[in-house]
Amino acid sequence: MNLAAAVQLPMVFRWRWVWLAPSTLFLAVMAGTAIGETAIPLETILKVLANRLWGAEHAVDRIDAGIIWNYRLSRAILAACCGAGLALSGVVLQALLRNPLADPFLMGISAGASTGAVAVTIAGLGAGVVTLSLGAFAGAGLAFSLVVLLARAAGSGTGGGRSAQAAGAIILAGIAGSQLFNALTAFIIAKSANAEQARGIMFWLMGNLSGVRWDDVTLGLPAALGGLLVCLWYRRALDAFTFGADSAASMGIAVRRVRAILIAVMALVTATMVSMVGAIGFVGLVIPHAMRFLVGNRHTRLIPASALAGAVFLIGADIISRVIVPGQVLPIGVVTALVGAPAFAVILIRGTRRR
């Protein structure tokens, strides 16, 4: 391959994304809107969109129009936002921690966000001043800080915590942090919630998109887009972090500042998603690894690919959760776990063999 062809390949890849990503995402959202207990034709969906967005006057059944606009479309869009946000969080954590098993669910961030959200809504923490998303963000930040401190303490007790020891320490610390904050969540529910609230919260904690409305989309969409833009802005720094903090510093990157910004933004994105749909596991673990296999390790490609794949994956998981059991909607976290748990095992076995 000559030099001209080598330069042309990245350009072709970029132009391909210009039309491929929006079309794929649009088709996934349309599928999420059309497929359900009652199938709705694509033509009807397009007519409803034309009526709502451009003031067209197509004749559409009112019930179908209500289902499309007030229920399924907003649900599909928020599922895409959550999938993209969680996948981006996985990309960032895996690069910063240099650990292939890092993701918001395993690192305790989702559990901490759930505790913060439940503390605000059920226990009344903040006396009405603290919002649900702010409570979730505080819980996520507290959980991740605890996990990092615990991992450092474990690492300092095992000769510096390098290589496999450091990777094992951070994962074990994440599991311990998740269990702690899950226990705190259960305690708050048992102490402050009545039977009806407890049932609704436990269903929500497993991942629930049933109550999603357009107000949630206006919060989730900016969070996902903001996270994507921040990740793209620091894409070269993330490339450097994959070789270690020392290598990143030698390239002129302000390691502490960049790491703090990226972790804070990803914690905020995760907390925003958890506050709306609950803790959904394994998206941030499975999607980045699948995209590395397809597009490589360069974050210029990995970040947009992971965001798109995460969005499509969670829309697909939501569709499955609605149709797999007739007349019943499963928590979406059940579907993602059924896919994520085997993928986690594969990643763990491959990582062990490489060492």
Rank of each mutant, 00 (worst) to 15 (best):
L3P: 00
L3R: 14
A4K: 13
A5L: 13
A5K: 14
A6E: 14
A6M: 14
P10K: 03
M11T: 06
V12T: 13
R16P: 00
S23Y: 05
T24R: 00
L25A: 15
F26S: 14
T38A: 14
A39K: 01
R52D: 13
R52E: 15
A59K: 08
A65D: 10
C82P: 00
A87F: 01
A87Q: 05
S89T: 14
G90C: 06
V92M: 08
V92L: 12
D103P: 04
F105C: 02
S114W: 06
A117W: 06
G124M: 09
G124F: 11
A127H: 06
L132T: 13
L132I: 13
L134A: 15
G135C: 13
A136E: 09
A136I: 07
G139F: 10
L146C: 09
L146D: 02
V147C: 12
L149A: 14
A151K: 07
G155F: 05
G155S: 15
S156W: 02
T158W: 06
G159N: 11
A164Q: 11
A164P: 00
A166I: 01
A167P: 00
I170D: 02
I171M: 04
I175D: 00
A176E: 05
K191E: 13
K191Q: 13
N194K: 02
W204A: 09
R213V: 15
V217F: 13
T218A: 10
G220P: 00
G220H: 00
A223V: 07
G226Y: 01
T242D: 12
D246A: 11
A248C: 09
A248F: 07
A249N: 13
A249R: 15
M251W: 04
G252Y: 09
V255E: 05
M266A: 04
M276S: 09
A279E: 07
I287R: 01
P288F: 04
R292Y: 08
A305H: 07
A307D: 06
G310N: 10
G316A: 12
R322P: 04
V323N: 06
V329Q: 12
F344G: 05
I347L: 15
I347Y: 06
G351V: 03
